[in-house]
């Protein structure tokens, strides 16, 4: 049944996923062209100087892609479920509700993980083409929290969409935004919070169960 569920979820989110992948590739192409232009216009030694000595963040164009991808995928996957309360049908499948929900979000999670790994590999490769490994490490360190922020955005958006009562949504939204802001606004590579980001990011996946419970009980 899990395979059928994967297929059903995939049908819902495939266009959103391919759309976000395409957008990511376009923005990465822009990053690549931007570096090439910078190297050409000010010369490699000066461009290296901006990046190495002044920490010029030549890759910040990718900052909001993961969060956007997370939100878009959550909408594509869960908003159809909420129309006409179709989620109720899913919940009546012969499996435990919580297991079903985890299976549903695991699909979005793995797709996003794949997309973010692709983005990281590509931005690392682009950086590594023009800059030494120290700069690549600076780029990947900085963008790490943005990627985890994308997963958090997905989990939190899913929880907010599934929540049936608007007053509770209005509680979740500002706190979710505040939490998400910690991941995205960290434009500083000098952070020591990787473990926190990873752990708390994955922990937010559990949040979906509470609104789903509200939904099921109609409360």
């Amino acid at each position: 049944m899990y395979n059928a569920l994967i297929y059903k979820e995939w049908l819902k989110i495939r266009w959103a996923f391919w759309g976000m992948t395409l957008l990511s590739l376009l923005i990465l192409t822009y990053v690549l062209l931007n570096i090439a232009y910078g190297m050409e216009s000010v010369g490699p030694k000066n461009f290296w100087g901006f990046v190495i000595l002044m920490n010029y963040p030549f890759f910040t164009d990718i900052q909001y892609i993961p969060v956007l991808a997370g939100i878009v995928l959550a909408f594509a996957q869960f908003s159809p479920e909420m129309n006409s309360s179709r989620l109720k049908l899913t919940m009546h499948l012969p499996a435990k509700e919580n297991t079903l929900l985890f299976q549903m979000i695991s699909i979005g999670f793995f797709l996003l993980l794949g997309l973010f790994i692709l983005i990281s590999v590509l931005v690392g490769t682009i950086s590594g083409f023009y800059f030494p490994k120290e700069v690549v490490s600076f780029v990947l360190n900085t963008s790490f929290s943005w990627s985890i922020g994308g997963l958090v955005a997905y989990f939190l958006s899913a929880a907010i969409i599934i929540e049936p009562v608007w007053s509770r949504r209005l509680v979740l939204i500002p706190f979710s935004l505040g939490f998400l802001d910690l991941f995205i606004s960290t434009g500083n590579p000098h952070y020591q919070l990787e473990v926190f980001f990873l752990f708390s990011g994955l922990l937010t996946s559990v949040l979906i169960l509470l609104p789903a419970y509200h939904f099921k009980r109609g409360i």
């Binding site: 509680v171 979740l172 706190f175 505040g178 559990v206 169960l209 419970y213």
Partner: peptide, 22 residues
């Protein structure tokens, strides 16, 4: 049980965000 854990995570999220922003 999982629902309770979900609720605890929700409480901790609000405490955490509130203790930064308020």
């Amino acid at each position: 049980m999982l629902i309770k854990i979900s609720r605890i995570v929700c409480l901790l999220l609000i405490v955490f965000v509130a203790s930064i922003y308020i």
